[in-house]
Simulated scan of single mutants.
Amino acid sequence: MAKNFHQAIRMCISCRNRQEQKLLVRLQCKEGLLEAFNNTGRSFYICNDCLSNEKKIIKALMRQCKSGEKERLVNRLKEIITDDRKS
């Protein structure tokens, strides 16, 4: 007898498309700084399609983190993504 498990569906903050949670990157903002999710506090998701398009995610990140520093957000996002792909 096969078990049918429910897959969690989450929404990308940039394109608003819904996908399975395991296909999205989970991030959070603490005090206006972008960080990888550390299992505490509120978080948000970004899909891989949006990650490849820098211009598309800048506005969403600025809105989510309530920050006007585009370069710092983008640079931190790149650091998080490269660290995540290494592990």
Rank of each mutant, 00 (worst) to 15 (best):
E35V: 07
N38A: 14
V74D: 00
T40C: 04
M11D: 04
Q19Y: 14
V74R: 00
C15T: 08
S14K: 04
D49Y: 12
A2G: 02
R63I: 02
L27A: 06
A2H: 02
R72A: 14
N4D: 09
I46M: 01
N75R: 11
E31Q: 09
S14F: 02
N48S: 10
T82N: 13
S43F: 14
N17Y: 15
L23H: 15
I58G: 02
L24K: 11
I80T: 05
N39Y: 02
E31I: 00
R26Y: 05
K30M: 06
G32Y: 01
L27V: 03
N39T: 02
Q19M: 13
F5N: 10
D83V: 04
S43H: 15
N75F: 13
A8E: 15
N39E: 13
D49T: 13
S67P: 11
L24T: 00
T82P: 05
M62D: 01
R42G: 05
K86H: 11
S43N: 14
N4V: 10
L33H: 07
E79W: 03
G32N: 06
R63A: 03
G68C: 11
N17C: 15
F37L: 06
E31A: 06
R18S: 13
R26I: 01
F37Y: 15
D83G: 02
F37A: 05
E20P: 11
E20V: 07
E79K: 04
R18T: 12
L77Q: 13
N17P: 05
N48M: 05
N75M: 06
K86Y: 14
C50R: 03
D84Q: 06
E69Y: 08
D83M: 08
A36K: 12
S43W: 10
Q64I: 02
N17Q: 09
C65P: 14
G68L: 15
R16E: 05
Y45S: 07
C47P: 01
G41R: 03
N75P: 07
M62S: 14
D83A: 09
Q28C: 15
H6P: 02
N48W: 08
L33K: 15
E69S: 12
N53T: 07
K59N: 08
I80Q: 00
R16P: 08
L77C: 07
D84L: 08
K59G: 09
I13V: 12
Y45Q: 03
L27I: 07
M62G: 09
G68Y: 06
K78Y: 06
R76L: 05
I46S: 00
K30E: 06
R18L: 08
E69M: 09
I81W: 00
D49M: 13
G68V: 14
